[in-house]
Design a protein around this nucleic acid. Structure first.
Length: 200
DNA sequence: CCAAAGATCGTCT
DNA sequence: GACGATCTTTGGA
């Protein structure tokens, strides 16, 4: 089976995409092998109105260039000099918005993910954070600007499980962003054990 | 040119 | 709960 989400899926309102990505299946394919996970936590970053967004009051150069392009591309950046974070670019060309994929639930054969995350003490800690997710799925700067219908990285359509609910909360670690701190732009699957930070 | 901070994680107390 | 690792990007002089 191969139901990759079409690129049109990403070329819509960023908050809608952030919510609808929950439950979908992220697939990566590297020289080491194929890895899959179910997306359980996302955050929206809204260019013009959002002080927490990398592209806030920015021109399309350097790291954020890909955010200004058409939805459906991958935006990967290095954080704190050590960890990658994986985002999905959304909206139309010229609207610099994206969704950060913060946590996933490993699916299928998880041996490769476990090899990449030898420090994880529990199964639920394999992909429960943006840096861990990139590490465990083998996502690096090589994936910067790659379209999400390519063979090396894509997302499969998948409905939420019966009875699962979506919760909106403030985003994690953006205390510097003044009023944007309080925006309810983080979305998680309620009660899922693989999310990065417990909902209060 | 240089200083400082950051959409994090693992370790230690 | 606090802190250090590590390096790109940014902002100010």
């Amino acid at each position: 089976m191969n139901n990759k989400l079409p690129l049109e899926f990403y070329r819509r309102d960023t908050l809608t995409v952030a919510k609808e990505l929950l439950g979908k299946v992220l697939v990566t394919s590297t020289s080491e092998g194929v890895s899959k996970c179910r997306i359980v936590e996302t955050e929206a970053y809204l260019g013009h109105s959002d002080k927490a967004c990398h592209s806030y009051h920015k021109k399309p150069f350097g790291r954020v260039n890909v955010m200004f392009r058409e939805g459906g591309l991958s935006y990967v950046y290095l954080i704190y000099g050590m960890y990658y974070c994986f985002n999905v670019v959304t909206e139309q060309e010229g609207v610099p918005e994206a969704v950060l994929i913060r946590a996933g639930e490993p699916l299928g054969d998880t041996s490769l993910t476990q090899q990449r995350r030898v420090k994880a003490k529990r199964f639920t800690q394999l992909l429960n954070g943006p840096g861990k997710l990139c590490s465990g799925m083998g996502i690096t700067k090589e994936h910067y600007g790659v379209p999400l219908n390519s063979d090396i990285i894509y997302i499969e359509d998948m409905p939420l499980n019966l009875g699962e609910q979506i919760i909106a909360t403030p985003r994690i670690n953006i205390d510097y962003a003044e009023e944007a701190r309080d925006f309810l732009y983080r979305f998680v699957i309620k009660d899922n054990p693989h999310i990065s930070v417990k909902v209060k």
